[in-house]
């Protein structure tokens, strides 16, 4: 049993390392091939975890090899458009200028029901409202609606909204986020002064504080207080 425990810990670390090295893509953004690679790696790891008769070495070598090949292919994909097309395929028009592309649908083994389903998932219940629909290489459908059917945007009414900035948390559960302070161009002294104006003596008394998208400072004290201060 102790062997199983140690093997599980070792494989967990190996898997963690392999997944970290392979990049941070979300499951829904994976290319079909990448998904298969992840499934193969997880299968090899689970086999080695369950069976003590197979050596760890016999799982480690394939996991390391597949991980390294996958990273190599990802780098080559970044470097070469041709290789990217070869390994990941190319985006395909399913609807072009409002016309369904029968040949592309046949190539991708999709019928009209599939396209209607995917369009509905994107919020388009009428295919005639779509100007262009593109099947991306990760299997997601990108839709560009016809001009008359697309949602109103601020630019259409010539409004000039103020620029928004990225909100940054500067204190997380009592801990000062130094990197966040640097991003905002402030230092810890500035933060302490802001807290003092709110009669808070230490960042440790703060649950969350930061700069919101409008550039305003906000602060929420820990549990007992639950007060929220805002500029």
């Amino acid at each position: 049993m102790a062997i199983l425990l140690i093997r599980s810990i070792a494989l967990y670390i190996i898997l963690l390392l392999a997944m970290k090295l392979m990049g941070k893509r979300q499951l829904g953004q994976l290319q079909p091939f990448e998904l298969v690679v992840i499934l193969v790696i997880s299968e090899m790891a689970s086999m080695a975890m369950q069976s003590t008769s197979a050596t760890l070495f016999s799982s480690l070598i394939p996991i390391a090899t597949i991980t390294l090949l996958q990273i190599l292919i990802s780098i080559l994909n970044l470097k070469s458009e041709k290789l990217r097309a070869l390994f990941c395929g190319k985006p395909v028009f399913l609807i072009r200028r409002g016309v369904l592309q029968e040949r592309s649908m046949a190539q991708l083994h999709l019928n009209l029901n599939d396209i209607e389903e995917m369009s509905r998932a994107q919020g388009y219940f009428d295919l005639s409202a779509i100007e262009n629909a593109i099947m991306e290489t990760n299997g997601q459908l990108s839709i560009m609606p016809k001009s008359a059917k697309r949602p109103l945007q601020l630019g259409d009414i010539e409004a000039d909204p103020p620029e928004e900035q990225m909100g940054v948390l500067l204190i997380l559960d009592g801990h000062v986020n130094q990197a966040g302070l640097r991003v905002c161009g402030y230092d810890e002294q500035w933060l302490l002064r802001r807290l003092q104006t709110l009669q808070i003596s230490s960042p440790r008394a703060v649950f969350a504080a930061g700069i919101d998208e409008n550039g305003q400072f906000f602060c929420q004290k820990k549990a007992a207080g639950r007060e929220k201060y805002h500029d």
Partner: peptide
């Protein structure tokens, strides 16, 4: 990028 490729190839050679 080229350095990464070299490192990966070296690691694959190490496995070999």
């Amino acid at each position: 990028m080229t350095k990464d490729i070299v490192v990966i190839i070296l690691l694959l050679v190490f496995i070999l």
